[in-house]
Amino acid sequence: MSVRLRLTLSYAGFLMVAGVLLLAAVWVYLLAYVPDDWNQRMLYQNPNRQLLAYTFAPAAGAVLAVLLVLGLVGGWFLAGRMLAPLTRITAATRTAAHGSLSHRIRLPGRRDEFRELADAFDTMLARLEAHVAEEKRFAANASHELRTPLAVSRTLLEVARADPDRAAGDIIDRLHTVNNRAIDLTEALLLLSRAGRRSFARERVDLSLLAEEAAETLLPLAEERGVTVEVHGAIAPATGSPALLLQLTTNLVHNAIVHNLPGGGAVRVTTSVRPGAVELAVENTGAPLSPELVSTLTEPFRRGAERLRTHDAGVGLGLAIVETIARAHDGTLALAPRPDGGLRAAVGLPATPPADG
């Protein structure tokens, strides 16, 4: 049976039960308060009149019949009115199931349970539409980025086949560089997917130690580019994946080193603790950046102005991975241009209470 029919029968059944109870109460009242000689007086006045029970039963049956009809008709009407919002929600669900995520219910009327359900469904559709659009854009960008090294590899192989006498060393070196770039891009995509699924074990992590480890690992790159790296700050305990948080820190420091001044640049890494949260901040010198440009740097494969694709410039996923890892740890990533040029990237994570003992 449909929900409307079940509600109709429920209303009618409830009305019938209430009617039976009411008639039973009237019957009990008559038995308790009608004088004992009532039947004799009724028979004396009209010999064709029945006794009390036979007089009351037909009227009670008629009342119950009327209540049943009213319960069925009124219940069907009321159930239809109450379930009308569900019809709109169901229609929107079917529309979304066929791939149209732009449809919204926008249920009018007062804010009740159905209105809250419709609003929650509209919010879910909006987020799902944005997520699908982002995934499509990401897939298109990833396909483009992966196609580039494959196309370069094919071109190099065609050149080698067309000119067998050409020195193979140069082609092999270039193929090696292109292949490494494709591997780095694939690993970055896998890391981005893993962080987005939150499929990792959580442990106690000190961000200050991760900052020191990342700076030490990237020190040769910083020295090669003439960039100084300073790390200082307080112990910043958080809870999460040590590997992912180290990747987050490494990406921030690597980004700050690569996108810096041509010579004499600086990177400053600090950790701090504030009520209920810890912060890892990475600042670097560099060219002035507009707020509009900075707001787009976390988009996958997005690079700032004049950011060249050198062998260590990354694959355009560094800050996108940082933001994904931060969100997976219930944190945030804030980017802001520095007044003197360069960028400040700050990751805030929920603080972990100090360990006992």
Score class of each variant (00 low, 15 high):
residue 207 L to H: 11
residue 207 L to V: 10
residue 207 L to W: 05
residue 207 L to Y: 05
residue 207 L to G: 05
residue 208 S to Q: 12
residue 208 S to I: 04
residue 208 S to F: 07
residue 209 L to P: 01
residue 209 L to K: 08
residue 210 L to K: 02
residue 210 L to G: 00
residue 211 A to W: 02
residue 211 A to Y: 03
residue 212 E to H: 09
residue 212 E to G: 11
residue 212 E to S: 09
residue 213 E to D: 15
residue 213 E to R: 09
residue 213 E to H: 06
residue 213 E to N: 01
residue 213 E to A: 13
residue 214 A to W: 00
residue 214 A to G: 04
residue 214 A to V: 00
residue 214 A to Q: 01
residue 214 A to R: 00
residue 215 A to S: 14
residue 215 A to G: 04
residue 215 A to C: 05
residue 216 E to M: 15
residue 216 E to H: 15
residue 216 E to W: 14
residue 217 T to S: 05
residue 218 L to N: 02
residue 218 L to K: 01
residue 218 L to E: 01
residue 218 L to H: 02
residue 219 L to E: 10
residue 219 L to S: 13
residue 219 L to K: 09
residue 220 P to F: 09
residue 220 P to K: 13
residue 220 P to V: 09
residue 220 P to Y: 13
residue 221 L to N: 02
residue 222 A to R: 00
residue 222 A to D: 00
residue 222 A to L: 01
residue 222 A to P: 01
residue 223 E to M: 06
residue 223 E to L: 03
residue 224 E to C: 14
residue 224 E to I: 14
residue 224 E to A: 14
residue 225 R to C: 01
residue 225 R to N: 07
residue 225 R to L: 07
residue 226 G to H: 14
residue 226 G to S: 03
residue 227 V to F: 05
residue 227 V to P: 06
residue 227 V to T: 15
residue 227 V to N: 08
residue 228 T to P: 03
residue 228 T to D: 10
residue 228 T to E: 07
residue 228 T to Q: 04
residue 228 T to W: 06
residue 228 T to G: 04
residue 228 T to L: 06
residue 229 V to E: 00
residue 229 V to A: 01
residue 229 V to P: 00
residue 229 V to Y: 00
residue 229 V to W: 00
residue 230 E to Q: 14
residue 230 E to C: 12
residue 231 V to F: 15
residue 231 V to C: 13
residue 231 V to A: 10
residue 232 H to G: 12
residue 232 H to S: 14
residue 233 G to W: 02
residue 234 A to V: 13
residue 234 A to S: 14
residue 234 A to M: 15
residue 234 A to I: 09
residue 234 A to L: 12
residue 235 I to W: 08
residue 235 I to R: 11
residue 235 I to F: 11
residue 235 I to N: 13
residue 235 I to S: 06
residue 236 A to M: 08
residue 236 A to V: 11
residue 236 A to G: 09
residue 237 P to N: 03
residue 237 P to M: 09
residue 238 A to R: 07
residue 238 A to S: 11
residue 238 A to D: 11
residue 238 A to F: 07
residue 238 A to E: 08
residue 238 A to Q: 11
residue 239 T to Q: 07
residue 239 T to M: 13
residue 239 T to H: 06
residue 239 T to F: 10
residue 239 T to V: 12
residue 240 G to M: 15
residue 240 G to N: 14
residue 241 S to P: 06
residue 241 S to F: 03
residue 242 P to H: 02
residue 242 P to E: 14
residue 242 P to M: 07
residue 242 P to D: 13
residue 243 A to F: 15
residue 243 A to E: 14
residue 243 A to N: 15
residue 243 A to P: 10
residue 244 L to V: 05
residue 244 L to Q: 12
residue 244 L to E: 15
residue 245 L to D: 15
residue 245 L to S: 06
residue 245 L to F: 11
residue 245 L to R: 08
residue 246 L to D: 00
residue 247 Q to R: 11
residue 247 Q to F: 12
residue 247 Q to I: 06
residue 248 L to I: 13
residue 248 L to G: 10
residue 248 L to N: 12
residue 248 L to D: 08
residue 249 T to L: 12
residue 249 T to R: 14
residue 249 T to N: 05
residue 249 T to D: 11
residue 249 T to G: 12
